[in-house]
């Protein structure tokens, strides 16, 4: 039987579970979220950890923590077990693990982390807010990875004195900012009642689209290049591309 260890989906509990497994030299077949449906040859193991097994080292090492956190945010099917093997090697080799791309799990971890970081960077640019009647700025995004926590932090600094909401359609979660902190909650917990746009909104969108069309130099047209940088899958929420 293949052992599948399960956790509740939170980053801290994943880290704790992996730390526990590593400490006890347990090799899981895979690690999955509680809702996972096992196959015929898999058996679910649910251990309730009562104490903290996480090695302090991990919290001291910013680069390491960020790398595994980004993998955790990815939509990769096997992200948990990837983090497990990466940490296993980290405790074996220390910081030089970041250069051991000849190890498959290291290469994979860094690739996934890079993907997430790249998508988050894109959404710092591609996110489009609309102003609602009540002055709240409202954006909808549909990223491949769960980059909402990363960009929330970005917009918290940038739009510090605005009220804003970003909704991730793909995950049905929402980030709410109240000029102090942002909260990420499920859309079931928070329903936006009135999404009427502010009076001026349409005019500003027209102004932006005018600018967008005007700056393209027609003698240099290169739609393929445009699409490379701004993939079609994101267009639905980028107002200058959506119509």
């Amino acid at each position: 039987m293949n052992n599948i260890y399960i956790y509740d989906g939170s980053f801290s509990n994943l880290l704790n579970l992996i730390s526990y497994l590593l400490e006890n030299k347990i090799k899981p077949f895979n690690i999955k979220i509680t809702t996972y449906n096992p196959s015929l040859f898999e058996q679910i193991i649910n251990i309730k950890l009562k104490k903290n097994f996480i090695n302090e080292d991990i919290f001291q090492n910013h680069h390491l923590l960020k790398t595994i956190y980004y993998v955790y945010l990815s939509d990769n099917e096997n992200k948990e077990i990837t983090i497990y093997y990466f940490l296993l090697n980290y405790f074996k080799f220390g910081n030089k693990v970041f250069y051991l791309k000849n190890l498959k799990c290291v290469d994979k971890t860094l690739k996934i982390a890079h993907l997430v970081s790249h998508e988050a960077h894109r959404f710092k640019g591609f996110t489009r807010f609309k102003e609602l009647k009540n002055k709240v700025l409202y954006a909808t995004i549909a990223p491949d990875n769960n980059i909402l926590p990363i960009i929330s932090k970005h917009f918290q600094k940038r739009l510090k004195n605005e009220l804003w909401i970003i909704k991730d359609e793909n995950r049905n979660i929402i980030s709410l900012y109240d000029k102090k902190k942002y909260y990420i909650v499920s859309c079931d917990q928070f329903k936006l009642l009135d999404t009427t746009l502010s009076e001026n909104e349409i005019n500003l969108e027209i102004l932006w689209k005018t600018f967008f069309k005007t700056v393209a130099i027609k003698e240099r047209e290169n739609k393929r290049c445009q699409m490379n940088f701004m993939p079609k899958k994101y267009w639905q929420n980028i107002i200058e591309m959506s119509d």
């Binding site: 967008f212 290169n222 393929r224 490379n228």
Partner: peptide, 26 residues
């Protein structure tokens, strides 16, 4: 930095869109 108003700079720069000629709009 955002000086209790609106906006800050990102050291690496950010592209917000790409025009039909493939150039970055920042």
């Amino acid at each position: 930095k955002n000086n209790n108003g609106i906006g800050n700079a990102a050291y690496a720069g950010i592209c917000h869109s790409f025009s039909a000629d493939g150039r970055c709009i920042s």
